[in-house]
């Protein structure tokens, strides 16, 4: 069984801080990491491959530096890594990205047919959750998003059964392969690679494919293939400027002062709130 995992290198948003004076983003020293949801997807792919004697190919679209994210995935036990890197790919939105990845999966499929594609449920920088379903739609594969558990996989009948997280609970669903799965954090716990695996990942050659290698049409990739465009980027207006009531400073009652102000200024809000719930002391 051949599984393809699609990953993305992202800035580590956990390291992002806001400059308290200028209210702008401090990017200095922010490292690029492999999107955490994607690491889960790769780990899940490797576990499935181990169970069903298959293999895992990891792909990503990005600049040459994205190679390091691919190596992290090789260390988790993926057999092969391919970097889709081409100037023509730059500026892609989710639509152009899913096109490029789907083209690559088509090519991989030609050499060694693909049964499953795994993606993280979303990337932590953009949080769009669009690329996984986009790939499934383009390839005509079944699509199972927000997968928390692979319950069963039967290579003989070519079916997979998963549990997905949806509004209000989770559903167990069964469908035919090939399929695209997008991973929730609890689908698998990425392993701490053993030394031999880590060494292998460091030595392995990573293939680089450009637009021509995946037979991508120029008008479908990168900026050209992206219907959306960014008009403006701005730092959200600081909420702040709020009123401060300091119980340490004030000899009088700061809490009472707050309540008076709050009940005075937020009349509408309180009416909505209290009317909806009957009354407060219920």
């Amino acid at each position: 069984m051949h599984i393809v995992a699609c990953i993305k290198q992202v800035p580590d948003t956990a390291q992002v801080k806001i400059d308290p004076e200028t209210k702008t983003l401090i990017r200095t020293g922010v490292e690029s990491i492999c999107n955490p949801y994607d690491l889960v997807a790769v780990e899940a792919a490797v576990q499935l491959a181990e169970k069903y004697s298959g293999k895992v190919t990891v792909i990503t679209m990005g600049p040459p530096q994205a190679e390091s994210a691919l190596r992290d995935c090789l260390a988790l036990g993926a057999q092969q890594a391919i970097l889709l890197s081409d100037r023509a790919f730059a500026g892609a939105d989710t639509l152009a990205t899913s096109y490029t990845l789907a083209q690559a999966i088509n090519k991989i499929n030609d050499a060694d047919p693909v049964s499953l594609v795994l993606c993280g449920k979303q990337a932590i920088d953009g949080d769009t959750a669009q690329v996984g379903p986009g790939i499934a739609t383009r390839l005509g594969y079944n699509q199972f998003t927000y997968v928390a558990e692979v319950i069963g996989l039967d290579p003989a009948s070519n079916t997979i059964t998963v549990r997905r997280e949806i509004e209000g609970g989770s559903e167990v669903i069964e469908g035919k392969l090939p399929a695209v799965l997008t991973a929730e954090l609890n689908l698998a716990a990425p392993r701490y690679a053993s030394l031999p695996e880590l060494v292998r990942s460091l030595r392995q050659e990573i293939k680089v494919w450009g637009a021509r290698d995946v037979a991508a049409l120029p008008e479908q990739v990168g900026l050209k293939g992206s219907p959306t465009m960014v008009r403006e980027i701005f730092v959200p207006p600081a909420r702040g400027g709020g009123q401060v009531f300091d119980t340490n400073e004030d000899k009088g009652n700061a809490v009472a002062g707050f309540l008076d102000t709050f009940f005075g200024k937020e009349q509408r809000l309180l009416e909505e709130l209290l009317a909806k719930d009957g009354h407060a002391q219920e």
Binding site: D93, T94, G126, T137
Partner: peptide
């Protein structure tokens, strides 16, 4: 979960832009 899943499919089929 449903809306995000569906919107991605439809945007891909129609080849139009989607902002999440």
């Amino acid at each position: 979960p449903l809306g995000r899943d569906l919107a991605s499919v439809v945007a891909t089929v129609l080849g139009t832009g989607l902002t999440a």
